[in-house]
Amino acid sequence: MRKIKKQKIYLLALLLPFIMFVIGFEIGPLVAMIKNSFYADDGIQVAIDQYITIFKSEFYLQAIQNSLVISLFSAVTSVIIAVIAAYSITKFSQKIQNRLLMIANMTSNFEGIPLSFSFIILLGNNGLFTLLFSKIGGDVFADFNLYSWTGLILVYIYFQIPLAIMLIYPSYQGIKKQWKEASSLLGGSTLSFWLHIGIPVLLPSIVGTFSILFANSMGAYATAYALVGSNYNLLSLQIASLVASDVALKPQLGSAMGVLLAATMIGAMWFNERMMRRIRRDLR
């Protein structure tokens, strides 16, 4: 009996490094951030000043709004493209399907700084396409500015699409050919099959993918940093400049914005869970 107890203590001791890392670099910093967000600028006085500042400042509200709009827009667009593209992919032979998914997997690793750079040399001020189009005389790109909202959307969609395809593609495997046959035997058209069977089956996967993409772009920092620097007002860029820039550090304000960003992401996950429950109630 005594020996077993001693062994248990040794085993528990082996867990210590893990616990230390989790406390030191995961839980600790999170708690510190939340706590710090409830201090005034001097870091001594306990106050909710920071949150009041954010919600009274047009500048910071705009940052939040811009981030939300870009994330929603890019997530919706990418999900729509992915739903259509993944369906088209399923129409090819297994070998080609695997190839296409390989391309999606490959390009999903092309993100952050290298991706932004790539778009800059293609579509930036002196980009290849920009110069080419201006020479051909097309005014299509005359109003296009990569270092703006449209540019950000374009790049965000680029890194969201491969991910969305890889997430949605598997759920098409769940739609059986026999279901289509049964539906048409019972007199259903292709449209009614998709309306009543196909889309409801895909819906949980679509909603789940949407909230992952949304969270993904809310937290995106590297891509935006490389593309627009501090020229565009985004939540993640503002947080970075408040806690780690060379000028005007405001760690308390940065913490409060960090808490808001984290809350948005938890909100997205919560929404995801609620939607799943609602949609799948029939199966529960």
């Binding site: 989790v22 030191g24 670099f25 995961e26 839980i27 600790g28 910093p29 999170l30 708690v31 510190a32 951030m33 710090n36 969270a215 809310m218 937290g219 995106a220 920092y221 993640s236 947080i239 970075a240 806690v243 780690a244 760690p251 940065g254 913490s255 960090g258 960003l261 984290a262 992401m265 938890i266 996950m269």
Partner: peptide, 21 residues
């Protein structure tokens, strides 16, 4: 829970707390 939590926290949020600590 401890192992999956980091997936929900973007680096930008994690960095705020790490700098503070």
């Amino acid at each position: 829970a401890a192992a999956m939590l980091p997936y929900g926290i973007p680096p930008i949020v994690g960095a705020v707390g790490l700098i503070k600590v």
